[in-house]
Design a protein around this nucleic acid. Sequence first.
DNA 1: AGCCTTGTACGATGTCTCTCGTACTTAACG
DNA 2: CGTTAAGTACGAGAGACATCGTACAAGGCT
Lengths: 116, 116
Amino acid sequence: MTSGVGTAAPGRALAHPDRDRLALERVLHALADPVRLSVVGVLAETGEELPCSAFALPVSKSTCTHHFRVLREAGVIRQVYRGTAKLNALRRADLDARFPGLLDVVLTARRRADGA
Amino acid sequence: MTSGVGTAAPGRALAHPDRDRLALERVLHALADPVRLSVVGVLAETGEELPCSAFALPVSKSTCTHHFRVLREAGVIRQVYRGTAKLNALRRADLDARFPGLLDVVLTARRRADGA
DNA sequence: AGCCTTGTACGATGTCTCTCGTACTTAACG
DNA sequence: CGTTAAGTACGAGAGACATCGTACAAGGCT
């Protein structure tokens, strides 16, 4: 049987870089885009796993897929299939372990820069 | 007369973004390049104003000019003409004021990522 | 079963980025 | 004044990136 229910991890798994191999330049590049930065901001604020459709980004669906892939390949988010949706979670623990403070600093800077 | 000696600020001045207008995405993008990141690392370590020629970068002179311009336009460094040379200084105070902790976090992360 | 929602894959396109070489400017130094 | 040293300007080319639309796959809902 291909699992009884399989609500958690049915389909194929996606490739995620190891925590020890996160590349700083890659992470910085991933964060250096307004769309992706806002995604990370929302994920950090809610602290939840959210499907791509929950972000209301000002780009098309295919562009959306592209940005989430960049974030995943840089190691910023973790993506898991769940039914037809794909849940996105911030890899906060991994990022904090590898680049201590980076995420918080960027998020804080983003808020400040946003309102000023 | 156009100033008696003029060893400090003779030629035309270069455009630098205001401290209050530094854009986070621009700064992140500027730091997301290995060549520029190494420049910032050297400037931070020495704490000195250094001419472009002091960096021994693995790129040509024109590419060098390009990278320093990106850093300057993002507001990461300040450039001042001095004779035929151009001195580069890290805008640490401005960066710390605008994006507290960002520079230190990136520099620390870079060292750690470097050796691991 | 059929439909709808969610996201992927693929190709196309225009822009930006990194890189270079060559020619030029600017200033110091003899 | 001529030479040298440090950068700049101006193309130019190769590659990456952001964007889109259309066609497709996979899973729930009725």
